[in-house]
């Protein structure tokens, strides 16, 4: 057994990545539509997690209302598509843009707030957005029933209508997002987020426009959540306010924290844990359904007590979280 392990370890890492990539690409050919749908669901949440990771992980801003940006993207697409017949691939960038503008509008006045205060205001904005969708004051969001009849995306006459089509579409988005996030991490802006997170005053004194840097985190995070919203709306063709509840903001928050804040593989692991695992549990035993949220809540507490940096943390964040423990216990 040990021998096998050592031999496995001896294999060049690249082969593992190749095997993983092949596995992901071939996955839908060896499984049922149900699991493909679960994978698509995973992909959409992974996008949401990665987008929140910019705000919460990189810039260290406590955002507990991320569902609002997701909602703005989904509803923008739904409204433009069902009312004006604009195709999904055209509404996609528009949704990203509208989400980003919305982020500027609401976060600009609150960027100076710290920690848990920011957390509360974002909860507030999230709830107001949900109520807006629910009450439908402008007569465009369809109230409690939401909007149905959203088109599937199509390009050059090809319509993405089967789960497997969606699988690859979502996969493409996730792969591009991971690629883009990796590059952002290692850029001037990525470093600026670290500086702001580590010591905002020192960052400001080093000539970094901390307000702008934080705002950019919200803008990019919101735009990406808007993209995820578009994918979601066109995948399910119907959206309703209850999807964009505070609960879902919490799920996204936990995806980032449990996976390992600021870490891309961490977000993917977190998405597995938060979104796919409950689905698996549902599948295993019918009676478990009732218990899974209970287990889930307990797991969140235990996780924070025994592994606060998450399952797959970024090295810097591990240092930060462990350092907080050290200095505080001195």
């Amino acid at each position: 057994m040990k021998d096998l392990f050592l031999r496995l370890k001896g294999i060049d890492q690249r082969w593992w990545y190749l095997a993983l990539a092949l596995g992901i690409i071939l996955f839908p050919w060896f499984t049922s539509n149900y699991w493909i749908s679960v994978a698509v669901f995973f992909g959409i949440y992974a996008l949401l997690g990665l987008s929140l990771n910019i705000i919460l992980g990189y810039a260290g801003l406590f955002q507990l209302g991320h569902a609002a940006f997701w909602a703005v993207g989904a509803y923008t697409t739904a409204i433009l598509n069902t009312r004006y017949g604009i195709p999904i691939f055209v509404t996609l960038p528009i949704s990203a843009l509208v989400s980003a503008l919305f982020a500027i509008l609401i976060t600009k006045p609150i960027l100076h707030l710290r920690g848990d205060y920011l957390c509360l205001v974002t909860i507030g904005f999230g709830e107001i957005v949900r109520l807006f969708l629910f009450n439908d004051p402008l007569g465009i969001t369809g109230g409690i029933n939401g909007i149905r009849g959203i088109d599937r995306p199509s390009i050059f006459g090809f319509v993405f209508h089967q789960p497997i089509h969606y699988y690859y579409l979502t996969l493409a988005f996730v792969v591009f997002t991971i690629f883009a996030m990796r590059r952002l991490e290692n850029s001037r802006l990525g470093r600026a987020w670290i500086y702001v997170r580590e010591d905002e005053l020192a960052a400001e004194a080093m000539g970094i426009d901390t307000t702008q840097v934080k705002l950019l985190a919200f803008i990019i995070g919101a735009a990406w959540a808007g993209v995820a919203g578009t994918l979601y709306a066109s995948r399910y063709t119907v959206i309703a306010p209850e999807t964009f509840s505070f609960w879902n903001s919490c799920v996204m928050f936990c995806i980032v924290i449990i996976g390992g804040v600021g870490s891309i593989p961490g977000v993917l692991v977190g998405t597995l844990g938060m979104v796919v695992l409950p689905e698996l549990l549902r599948d295993v035993l019918e009676e478990v359904v009732q218990w899974r949220m209970l287990v889930f809540g307990a797991a969140m507490m235990l996780m924070m007590i025994f592994r606060p940096e998450g399952f797959w943390p970024s090295p810097i964040r591990r240092h930060e979280l462990r350092a907080a423990e050290l200095t505080a216990s001195e």
Binding site: D116, C254, I257, F296, M300, M303, M304, P308, L321
Partner: peptide
């Protein structure tokens, strides 16, 4: 002593 993020998550977990 674990910073400010962990207690928020733990509190959400407790709530659930």
């Amino acid at each position: 002593k674990a910073g400010r993020l962990a207690p928020v998550v733990s509190a959400l977990g407790a709530s659930i």
